[in-house]
Amino acid sequence: MDLYPLFNSLRIAALSTAIIFFVGIAAAWWVAKLPRLAKGVLDVVLTLPLVLPPTVVGYFLLRLLGPRRVLGLWFLETFDLRLTMVWYAAVVASAAVAFPLMYRTARGAFESFDQTLSHAGRTLGRSNVWIFWRVTLPCCRQGILAGTVLSFARALGEYGATAMIAGYTPGKTATISTTVYQLWRTGDDGGAMKWVLINLAISAAVLLTVNMLEKKDRRPRRRVEPVSGEVG
């Protein structure tokens, strides 16, 4: 059995998650601090890929990255790089579709972060960068981890936009989801079933991870009695 689709899917999901991780956190951090109106507008724009049909996202990406379109042409002329019908085109597609999951979970975490802690850091003379890396991020760790895992799961299962922008070329752009469709279409029911089971296993593992992260988050705060002989 050719395991290329598994390798390709994992590679695409990992790369797009890595991109989403940084872009999503930055966007969440930035939007969480905006005034209400700007926040509302940007929030809609940044969340749209989550509710749009992936084919619509794929259509927009083709309009943008196609070989005769603005960005696509520029990449082709400058770097001699095709942005469609190659495996890394699927990275862009997966990243676009999964981005809102990271952005929204991270934003929720930032918004529920106790601002008093950052005020305390500032009055202690600590820079905003220090506060972000040493206090804010660690305090929002659970939300950010959950967002990362969810984005990974979504990127792994991406089909619509990927099919449009990367297509299906065995050994080149084939992913698990496009392979399942291709095998079923050509009547290879057994082959499709194998890939379905592989996909099920990965998704279940991912969801289990998310649940474990959430449980850890809800763990009751332990309160230790004062050291003997000390009151207060």
Binding site: T116, A120, V135, P138, R141
Partner: peptide
């Protein structure tokens, strides 16, 4: 002046200790 340069200590109602440290 930003809070960092005021040299004013602030004891918050909730004490605001960093929970992760």
């Amino acid at each position: 002046l930003p809070p960092q340069r005021r040299q004013v200590g602030y004891l918050f109602q909730s004490y605001a200790l960093f929970p992760n440290l």
